Simulated assay, not measured.
Amino acid sequence: IFINCLFYVLCCDSGFGHGLALRLSGLGMQVFAGVLDSEGDGAKKLKEWDPERIAVLQMDVTNPEHIAQVKETINKRLGQKGLWGLVNNAGLLLCPVDAELQSTSSLRRLMEVNFLSAVTVTQTFLPLIRKAKGRVVGVSSLAGEVPMPLLSAYSASKAALACFCRVLRLEMLQWGVHVAVIQPSGFKTSMELLIEPIIEELLSHTSPELLQDYGQDYISSLPSVLDTMSQATKQDMSPVLDCIEHALLSTHPRPLYCPGKSAWLLPFLYTHLPTATFDRFTVRVRNIQK
């Protein structure tokens, strides 16, 4: 099973990919864990945990050469057996910001890491997955299903990933390959952000007109939203790991998993409430969090 453990804002030391690699190796699975830094703390812990079952492979998912090299390495290890599972969980969040203030460069970066890289990795490994009639799992987000203020770019990238997986699921039926989407709500993973450089970057990319309309104090406060988001998340990642494990190993996997608090409730409200009612609810929650 190949797990893409790359994290940017999230940290491989305590992220979903790290925990999943440990869990699956404990079940006797051979795990190929892709990491951004093969010499980092997270990678070292994986190597020490179970060197026989966990193969740590350095791979930047935005680098096609890295992806091709990893495929070649896995091919050599597996021979003609094929690859049973692929988990696309690489993620980038960046600083929450109003859509009007979102820089094009940040939007491109989010789409590259959260969506386009998953497409490239999936296309690269699908021949091996089809050979094994295995599984593909994409880790999306509640934000990709329900509109959330300040997360327009992140939400768009995760929505694109979820839609890609849903279409792929239909296309892979003829091959006996199952594709699932994991759509978790908020879970706490390590975040290490330097606030001052983020504020400086936001202010430098904001036009004088927008700076006047939104106000410097408001724009400077945006990075603190990450702290508020973090306080509202759960530290226990086991619900997400349970869902990924089920999607990979169950005889009857589901097409969609929604682990975590409000992961099913908010989409239900968004779908069934009148738009104006849901909008008032969302804006009220945002104001409370400020």
Rank of each mutant, 00 (worst) to 15 (best):
T73A: 13
S207M: 07
G34W: 06
D217W: 00
V225G: 02
A99S: 12
T206R: 01
I67R: 09
K45M: 12
S140N: 02
L78W: 07
K133I: 05
V35A: 05
E145P: 00
T124G: 15
I195P: 06
F115L: 11
P149H: 05
D242M: 01
P147R: 09
A160G: 11
L150R: 08
M229A: 13
K45W: 03
L202W: 12
T206V: 09
P239Q: 07
Q174P: 02
A55G: 05
T124W: 09
K47D: 09
R166G: 15
F164P: 08
S117H: 08
S238H: 01
P274D: 06
V283W: 09
N114G: 02
Y154W: 05
L266Y: 12
S262P: 01
R286D: 10
D13K: 12
S140I: 01
N88A: 00
V56T: 06
R23L: 06
Q80W: 07
Q235Y: 08
C5I: 11
C258M: 05
K290G: 12
E200D: 14
V113W: 02
E192H: 11
Q102F: 10
E209K: 15
Q30Y: 04
R77F: 12
G134K: 06
L151V: 15
G85K: 00
L10V: 03
V283L: 15
G40K: 02
K188L: 12
T104D: 13
E145N: 07
F164V: 07
L269V: 02
R284I: 01
L57H: 03
L10H: 15
D236R: 04
Y214M: 02
P253E: 01
W49F: 13
Y154L: 03
D279N: 14
M172L: 04
T228F: 03
I195T: 07
E72T: 10
Q212G: 04
D217G: 03
C243E: 05
V87Q: 03
Y257N: 06
R23E: 11
R280K: 13
G260R: 00
L27R: 14
T233P: 01
Q289Y: 08
K188W: 00
E72Q: 13
R135Y: 13
L211H: 02
A90G: 08
L128F: 09
H205C: 09
Y214C: 03
K71A: 14
P223F: 06
L36M: 11
E112D: 15
E201Y: 02
L78H: 02
E145Y: 07
Y154I: 12
D242I: 02
D213F: 06
T124H: 10
H272K: 05
C243N: 06
F164H: 12
C5V: 09
L86A: 02
L203T: 04
T62D: 00
I54Y: 04
I195D: 05
R166H: 09
K188Y: 07
H18D: 06
R135W: 01
E52D: 08
V31K: 01
T228I: 14
